[in-house]
Design a binder for these strands. Structure first.
Lengths: 291, 291
DNA sequence: GTTCCGCATGAATCGATAG
DNA sequence: ACTATCGATTCATGCGGAA
C-alpha cells in the first residue's frame, strides 16, 4: 500500500494497522483535547483520556522510524478549578510502553486577546511533548537558526582580552575560549520556547494551530522527501506545512468533512507552491541545512 | 512564637513544626532541584526527589491559610538524554495528600544558559506550579495589570481586523465584544506566561531568580501586611520582594552563610525603602488594587 | 545627565576518559 | 557495567565605568 501524500478516513488506531513498521520520519499532531461536553469533535472525557490514547501511542511507536520523532501538541483542560492530570499521566504511560520523553517545548502564543476569569488569567502557552524511540534521533538544528541579537555586533567587532582568557582564570564554562568562531556569525540556535502568533492566516478554515508550528518542527526533524504523519489531521495544517517544505505527508481523520477541507487546502497549496518557492524564506531553508 | 519577618536556620520540615496551622498567606519558593547545587545543599538524587519533598509539602499544607496559595518554582533535569519525571510525579503526589493543582505558570526566560548539544536546544523556561487548599483562593488580579502599550505591541497589534471578525464569528461569545471592553483602557490583564530575565550580574550574591518573579506573585496573591513564606530562602530574594511590597516575610534555610546574605540584603532593602516608595511604580500598586 | 561599551556570568548538557 | 570528572560548546543581559 502506498501511503505517501494520502489522506485516510477513519480512526487512526485502526488505519495505522495497515501501515508497515518504521515507515514514518516524523509524527506531528494535536489530538482532540479532552472535553467535558459531548462530542463536537472527539469529545473524550478527561478521566478516560489516557486509556483512549494509549493504543494509538502503541501504533505510533510501531510505525515511526527508529531515528524519528513524535511531537505531541497537547493541553490539559481545567476541570473543576484544577488542571486535569491526564497529560502528565500520559507521559508516564508513554514511557512504560517504551517511548523516551526527550523534551518539552513550549509554544508561547504571541497574540491572544485579553481574557480574565475569577481565578486565572488567559492560558497563553501549550506543551509540545517530544518523544523518541532512541536516544539518538535525527535533528537538523541548522534549519531553524534565528538571527543573532544586536549585542553581537558591538561585542564581536572589538574582541576584549578578558573574553579570551576567561576560561583559564575560572572554573566556569569558558565562553571566551573560541571566540574567534563567532566572528562573522549572524545566526544562533533557538531555544525550546517557540514564540509564534496564534492565528492562521487562511480564513476558510479554523485550525488549532498556525502553519508555522508544524513548519518549525518539520524543518527541525526531517529532510526533504521525508514522510510526516498527522494521525489527527483536522483541517490539514500539518500536511500543508509538509508540502510547502517539500516533504511528503500522510493524514488520518475520523470526519469526512475535515478531510474535504484538508484536500481543498492541499490543492490550493500545491497551486501556489511555485510562487511560495520563489518568495518564501521558509522554502529557501532547505538549501542551507547541513547534511 | 512570633514568626513575622524572621529567618530561621534549619530544615524547613522541622522548623515548620513549630508554626501554627493556617498562618501563612503565600508560600513562594524554589527548592534545590534534583542533583543541582550539590556544592551548597548536598544534592538530591532525581529518583529520591519526590520522597524528599513530600513531608515538606505536608507541612506547607498545614501552615498555609485556607485561602492562601503555594507557588513552586521547579524544573526537571535531563538525565540520560530524557527529561526526568520527578516533577510530574510530584504533582500527582501533591494531589494525593490534598493539594489542588490549580495552575501552571510558565517563566519564559529572556536569557538562558548558553549551549548547544546534538539533541537539544537551550532550556529557556521553568515551571511555576500553583497549588491551593481550596477552589476559592485570594487573588488580586488588578495588582499585576500591565500598561496597554507593552501588551499591545506584543499581542493586539498582531491581530488584523479580519482576524478579529473571524474570531468573533468562530467563538460566538464575541471577540469583537471583548475587544471593545479593552479599547480606551490603559491597563490590561497579563497571561500565565511571565517573561523575565534571569539575574546574572549581582556581585554579592547569586540569586537563582530575579526579584521580579516573587514580586509578581506576591502582588497577585497577597495584600499589604500579609505573610509570605519561603522555606528554601537561599539568598533571600523572596523576602526582599515581600518587604519592598509592604508584606511580611518568613524565611528558612539550612545554610548559615545564605542566612547572613539574606539578612544583609534585607537590611539594605529597608534602608532604601523610603526611596523606593517615592519612585517605584511597583510600590504604588497597592493603592490601585481592587478589594 | 545620557549613551556607549567592556565585561562577568547564569539551577546546562554531552561525550570521552578515568577510577 | 557503572559512576565521577573534565573539556568543549554556547547567548543575552545588566552593571558600572568611561566618553
Amino acid at each position: 500500500m502506498n501511503i505517501d501524500n494520502q489522506i485516510f478516513l477513519g480512526d487512526c488506531e485502526k488505519v495505522l494497522k495497515s501501515f508497515p513498521d518504521n515507515c514514518v520520519d516524523l509524527i506531528f499532531t494535536s489530538p482532540p483535547y479532552a472535553d467535558q461536553r459531548k462530542a463536537t469533535y472527539g469529545g473524550i472525557k478527561p478521566d478516560q483520556y489516557v486509556n483512549w490514547f494509549m493504543p494509538k501511542a502503541n501504533e505510533f511507536l510501531r510505525i515511526l522510524k527508529p531515528q524519528g520523532t513524535f511531537i505531541l501538541n497537547i493541553k490539559e483542560r481545567v476541570v473543576n478549578g484544577e488542571r486535569h492530570t491526564y497529560v502528565i499521566e500520559l507521559i508516564l504511560k508513554m514511557r512504560e510502553i517504551g517511548w523516551l520523553w526527550t523534551e518539552e517545548f513550549i509554544w508561547h502564543k504571541k497574540n491572544s486577546y485579553p481574557g480574565k476569569w475569577p481565578n486565572r488569567f488567559r492560558d497563553n502557552w501549550e506543551r509540545l511533548l517530544q518523544f523518541n524511540k532512541n536516544k539518538k534521533f535525527r535533528m537538523y538544528q541548522e534549519a531553524v537558526m534565528v538571527p543573532v541579537g544586536d549585542w553581537a555586533k558591538d561585542r564581536l567587532s572589538n574582541l576584549s582580552n578578558k573574553d579570551k582568557i576567561r576560561d583559564e582564570s575560572k572554573v566556569g564554562s569558558g565562553f571566551g575560549k573560541n571566540i574567534s568562531n563567532w566572528v562573522g556569525r549572524d545566526k544562533v540556535y533557538p531555544t525550546n520556547v517557540v514564540h509564534l502568533a496564534t492565528e492562521c492566516s487562511n480564513q476558510n478554515h479554523s485550525a488549532a494551530f498556525p502553519t508555522e508550528l508544524p513548519t518549525w518542527f518539520i524543518k527541525l526533524f526531517t529532510q526533504p522527501n521525508d514522510l510526516v504523519l498527522d494521525p489527527f489531521l483536522g483541517s490539514g495544517t500539518t500536511a500543508v506545512a509538509a508540502i510547502q517544505l517539500g516533504r511528503k505527508y500522510v493524514g488520518i481523520d475520523t470526519e469526512q468533512n475535515y478531510i474535504e477541507i484538508s484536500k481543498a487546502r492541499l490543492l490550493d497549496t500545491q497551486i501556489q507552491l511555485p510562487m511560495i518557492a520563489e518568495n518564501s524564506e521558509n522554502y529557501q531553508v532547505e538549501d542551507k541545512r547541513d547534511s
